[in-house]
Design a protein around this nucleic acid. Sequence first.
DNA 1: CGTCTGACAATGA
DNA 2: GTCATTGCCAGAC
Length: 100
Amino acid sequence: MNEFTQSIYLNLTQVPFGRIISYGQLAKLAGYPNHSRHVGKTLSRLPEDTSLPWFRVVSSQGKISLSGDNFIRQRKALEKEGLTIRDDGKILNFKQVIMQ
DNA sequence: CGTCTGACAATGA
DNA sequence: GTCATTGCCAGAC
């Protein structure tokens, strides 16, 4: 595992219950600004039984970036934490969202 | 080494 | 508010 991945994991564990963070913001926190796309790639390699809150990571538009079964999985996980998700993936209750 | 790809982001119409 | 365009950069080929 490289340093980038390590740092992403570490910072991801700090995202609290019921909140979300954007790919770009997570990359920035991890010390790698402008690496938003690489964050998605890294998260896609996580095992299904991971304890990391990967589902709290969404696009800067507050929208789920996944599709198909993965979209469903993330949507359900977020709804369990009190968030409301529209069919197109847009998260409606922005009060608890970490952005910027 | 050149190109392409992607769980993205910022900007402008 | 929604697209479309452009910039971005590590990996995969």
